[in-house]
Amino acid sequence: MKARVTVTLKTGILDPQGKAIEGALKSLGVAGIASVRQGKVFDIELAGADPAQAEAALKDAADRLLANTVIENYNIEVRR
């Protein structure tokens, strides 16, 4: 089973790296860029076949390690 955990900054949290990427894209001439927010993606392979159990384990991992839940949100996608 495979899963993807996507971690992004919460709305209202400053994102200096996103601003730097935004500026770089504009300086490269990429048109239509309004704003950029950056994040992290974790692709995880899991042993087992129970998606509910996998999601629960990943939620625990995200809460404890993968995301700083004070300033970040996360989304978990589990697929077989």
Rank of each mutant, 00 (worst) to 15 (best):
M1H: 07
A3F: 06
A3Q: 06
R4L: 11
V5W: 08
V7H: 09
V7Q: 09
L9I: 11
K10I: 14
K10W: 13
T11S: 14
T11K: 14
G12R: 06
G12C: 10
I13M: 12
L14C: 04
L14A: 14
D15A: 08
D15S: 09
D15G: 10
D15C: 08
P16E: 02
P16W: 01
G18I: 04
K19A: 06
K19Y: 03
A20Y: 01
E22T: 02
A24I: 02
A24K: 01
L25I: 06
K26L: 05
L28A: 12
G29W: 04
G29K: 01
V30C: 11
V30D: 03
V30F: 14
V30Q: 06
A31N: 02
A31Q: 06
A31E: 08
G32K: 01
I33L: 02
V36K: 02
R37N: 12
G39T: 12
V41S: 15
F42T: 13
E45Q: 15
A47M: 10
A47G: 11
G48E: 12
A49G: 15
D50P: 00
P51R: 03
P51Q: 05
E55A: 14
A57G: 13
K59C: 06
A61L: 15
A62F: 07
A62K: 04
L65W: 10
L66Y: 13
A67R: 06
T69F: 03
E72C: 03
E72A: 04
N73W: 04
Y74G: 07
Y74L: 07
V78D: 10
V78N: 08
V78Q: 09
R79P: 00
R80E: 14
